[in-house]
Design a protein around this nucleic acid. Structure first.
Length: 485
RNA sequence: GCGGGCGUAGCUCAGUGGUAGAGCGUCACGUUGCCAACGUGAAUGUCGUGAGUUCAAGUCUCAUCGCCCGCUCCA
């Protein structure tokens, strides 16, 4: 029975073995930023590759993309981030609870028609605290810049303010036309991208779970309106199964459907894939969101393109411009699609599975962590899926003499061309096995006295600790099969 | 941002005003023939950072940075 991991155990293992360090640690650390060490860099890259393999490589209807992090500021005007990502927040003086101003309810139900645009009124005297029920006990609303800003242009007198992207998705929408024009792909199809995004979160959380700089793996899958609901189901299942396939235990994974009132402004439906992380109140936490973004984004960008003159005239001040209304024949716009077979024009609907690479990596770490008693000693190990394991095999001479190191080194030099392998001849072999267990290495190959006589070695398996004798010439093939690589 | 807890060796931690420690880990040599063996030896600390109180601060005070828990939000 696997032991329940505590987050503290994971954090200290990560530091000790070189998976994850705090950023800028020698300077006291930088809040919410973390670095991946030698083993962590391998693990994270394997997580990325596993995602790419299933979402892009193994599908004929998805292509990849790798956009710049810096994009034209109008992208964020059109997407809604420039406005929606500037929430006003206030604190209840009575109970100290923090609330978003636009989420507060009036104390008396008003019969006045709901304004089309939610006004950013500073008058909170009639608002109710959702936590304690106090009316009008709010402090001065605080503004938050949820997007990171930076400047482009070396000349300080002539710079343009840009945003670090808060999601990778907009780069995909912005390249929708390019991909259509430069490939022969047709709807339904998807564009996938893995990359860094940045959000100035009000609060960060739990190690690498919520950081302000994070890595996303996003797919925007474009489909014909009316087929969106079945594609939504398709990707829901695909993505859930992906986590299971790479070793997440079934009992720690679930779906959570979003309620209508918690849906983002662009979404028609959204479901989260949640993992039972060992922090907080032991609550389920989101690994990935799968949303039906409808045709919102592509249509917004068509409005954005139409607004460019206003942008120039206002010298790039996003706060002074409003997106122009959609053209009446928006179905002929640059981001609309013409289906040659049915002779129909439409703006595709988008199904978006959006996964957090850092979160997945943490989940795989937590789920793989195990402690067990062996001969009255504790054995710590990471039961990684072989594809995710940072090191695929350790190669050891049983002892450091009698020609064993030479044979082992030859095996290592051969294997390293195909797998990430690690050579070790220090200390007793049992200790070396345990060291590899803690790094999650699935196999260890040991050269012993018999190896010189019959050219065989032992292959020891991480999870069962069982050993098999394999001919040296067969080691590579044996690992290939076992690792499924 | 608010409230609570915490910060001493790579990791886990002891140290309540008087010479900075232990276990594990790491390294070297010897030994060792399959699961964290043993022996000998070694390296490793701005006691998170900065001020203050004191003859004397890891220890007391203040500030600051960072981590964990809660509020809130999200990939």
């Amino acid at each position: 029975m696997a032991k329940l991991a505590r987050l503290d155990d994971i954090v200290s293992l990560c530091k000790r073995r070189g998976f994850i360090y705090q950023s800028s640690e020698i300077y006291g650390g930088l809040a919410s930023c973390y670095d991946y060490g030698p083993l962590g860099a391998e693990l994270k890259r394997n997580v990325r590759n596993a995602w790419w393999k299933h979402v892009v490589q193994m599908r004929e209807d998805v292509v990849g993309l790798d956009c710049s992090i810096l994009m034209h500021p109008m992208v964020w005007k059109a997407s809604g981030h420039a406005d929606k990502f500037a929430d006003l927040v206030t604190v209840c003086k009575k109970c100290g609870t923090r609330s978003r101003v636009d989420h507060l309810q009036d104390s008396k139900p008003s019969n006045a028609p709901v304004p089309a645009e939610p006004q950013q009124s500073q008058d909170l005297s009639g608002k109710v605290c959702p936590a304690c029920g106090a009316v009008g006990q709010f402090g001065q609303p605080m503004a938050f810049k949820l997007m990171f800003e930076t400047q482009m242009g070396a000349n300080v007198d002539d710079t343009m303010t840009l945003f670090l992207r808060p999601e990778t998705a907009q780069g995909i929408f912005a390249n929708f036309r390019n991909v259509l024009d430069s490939t022969r792909i047709k709807v339904p199809f998807g564009i996938a991208q893995i990359g860094k995004s940045f959000r100035n979160e009000v609060t960060t959380k739990a190690f690498i779970f919520r950081t302000r700089e994070f890595e996303q793996a996003e797919l925007e899958f474009f489909c014909k309106p009316g087929t969106d609901e079945s594609w939504f189901e398709h990707w829901k299942q695909q993505r859930f199964n992906w986590y299971l396939e790479y070793g997440i235990k079934k009992e720690n994974l679930r779906f959570r459907e979003h309620e209508k009132d918690e849906l983002a402004h662009y979404a028609k439906a959204c479901v989260d894939v949640e993992y039972k992380f060992p922090f907080g109140s032991g609550d389920w936490q989101e690994l990935e969101g799968i949303a039906n973004r409808t045709d919102y984004d592509l249509r917004q960008h068509q409005r954005g393109i139409r607004t460019m003159n206003d942008w120039y005239e206002n010298k790039g001040d996003l706060t002074k411009i409003a997106l122009r209304q959609e053209s009446e024949d928006y179905l002929k716009g640059p981001l609309a699609y013409f289906d040659e077979e049915t002779r129909e024009r439409y703006v595709p609907y988008v199904i978006e599975p959006s996964a957090g690479i850092d979160r997945s990596t943490l989940a795989f770490l937590v789920d793989a962590y195990d402690e067990e008693q062996v001969n009255n000693e504790q054995r710590n190990l990471l039961r990684f899926h072989p594809a995710l394991a940072p090191v695929k095999a350790g190669v050891f001479p049983l002892v450091k003499k009698d020609g064993m190191p030479e044979i082992a080194m030859n095996i290592y030099n051969d294997l390293k061309k195909y797998f990430t392998v690690f050579y070790d001849e220090k200390a007793a072999v049992g200790r070396r096995y345990r060291r590899q267990d803690e790094a999650g290495t699935p196999y260890c190959i040991t050269v012993d006295g018999q190896s010189r006589e019959d050219n065989t070695v032992t292959v020891r398996e991480r999870d069962s600790m069982e050993q098999t004798r394999v001919h040296i010439d067969q080691v590579k093939t044996y690992l290939r099969e076992k690792l499924d690589l």
